[in-house]
Amino acid sequence: MTPLERALRERIRTEGPLTGEAFMEACNSYYYATRDPLGAAGDFTTAPEISQMFGELVGAALADVWARAGRPANARYVELGPGRGTLASDALRVMRSAGLVPPVHFVETSETLRAAQKAAIPDATWHEHIEHLPGDGPLLVVANEFLDALPIRQHVGGIERRIVITAGQLAFDRDGEIVETSPARDGAVRAISERLVALGGMALVIDYGHERTAPGDTLQAVRRHGFTPVLVNPGEQDLTSHVDFQRVGEIAREAGAVFSGPAEQGPWLERLGIMARARMLANAAPERAAEIEGARARLCRPDQMGSLFKVLAISAPEWPTPAGL
């Protein structure tokens, strides 16, 4: 039994059944505070860790929008949940080549991951919450696999699903057609949308999910690069759910922002020039040509990450639509 499971069981005994939202929040807070989950030795691998091409094309998209917006001098680069800082490092390199050298702001709560980010981007500024970001200039925001990790609520027949102890095991108290909501996700989208409307700028959101609101159980756990039961090993595996992109668009528009997309990740990267970039890298390092092509395929092919992951943008009304969307 994990240390967190013992704590959760005691919480259930003293406070009663635990909501799925509270369970997911407790598990992910513990999980990210106690490890670096990325890479082959971890539990999962994100697109920036697969290839530099991903971060480079994100950086190119941000630099292009910034240039078409008039090259504002006080723009800032913001990343929500920046992992090891790999995406930022690759994106900022491309932005610098386009004449954009913005101050860097990270929204990150894990001290373990902050240490890795500091090694990659030493001069970044860290924040606990989106609301703590600076308020005196346009924001160029990236949220790659950030929204999927925010806690969700599940309802069956209009009643919130909870976690109980049954026959000595953690179990859900009801089954049936599940409807998911996420006040935490709504709040994050609203906060960034309101800041973009007030300050200018654009946010690129890259995540997996569904384009239309629909019922269904999308809560899942990943450990050692495979799916595992959600209620097993609390705090020792990553819990996520599919992002409802229709809901993201509704929240953004309610805040007065412009919503673009979603587009599938593969076609989006192809429109931004990943094929040409892969050829350049392979020509510069022929011994790595197969590795580079394998990474490109993993990012773009429909049967890998190309269709599952979507890209969308939230923009200030006066800012241009980003390339590829």
Rank of each mutant, 00 (worst) to 15 (best):
M95Y: 00
G39Q: 04
P183I: 06
P102A: 10
L281N: 01
P322I: 03
L87G: 11
A188C: 11
V164C: 07
T166I: 02
G266E: 06
F259V: 05
N283L: 14
D36A: 13
G168K: 14
S51T: 13
P3V: 06
P234V: 02
M280P: 00
S182H: 09
D90V: 01
A167W: 03
G294T: 02
L150I: 03
A143L: 06
A276N: 10
A255K: 11
R11L: 08
P234G: 07
V205L: 15
E79M: 05
D148R: 08
L8I: 11
G70C: 12
R13K: 14
G42K: 14
M305I: 05
G201H: 12
R11S: 11
A285W: 09
E194K: 15
E264I: 01
P215T: 04
P262F: 04
P3S: 08
F146C: 07
E180C: 10
R71K: 15
A184G: 09
V58D: 12
V58W: 07
A323V: 03
A149C: 10
R174E: 02
I165R: 11
M280R: 15
I206H: 05
L133P: 10
R35N: 06
E180S: 12
K118P: 00
A313I: 06
L18R: 12
A60G: 15
G81E: 01
G176F: 04
Q304W: 08
S110R: 08
A284G: 14
Y208N: 02
E10Q: 14
G20M: 12
G16T: 07
P3K: 12
P72M: 04
M95R: 04
R190N: 04
R301H: 13
R11C: 07
L219T: 04
I274M: 06
M275V: 14
E254A: 15
R35G: 06
L299T: 12
E15P: 00
T46E: 02
F146D: 02
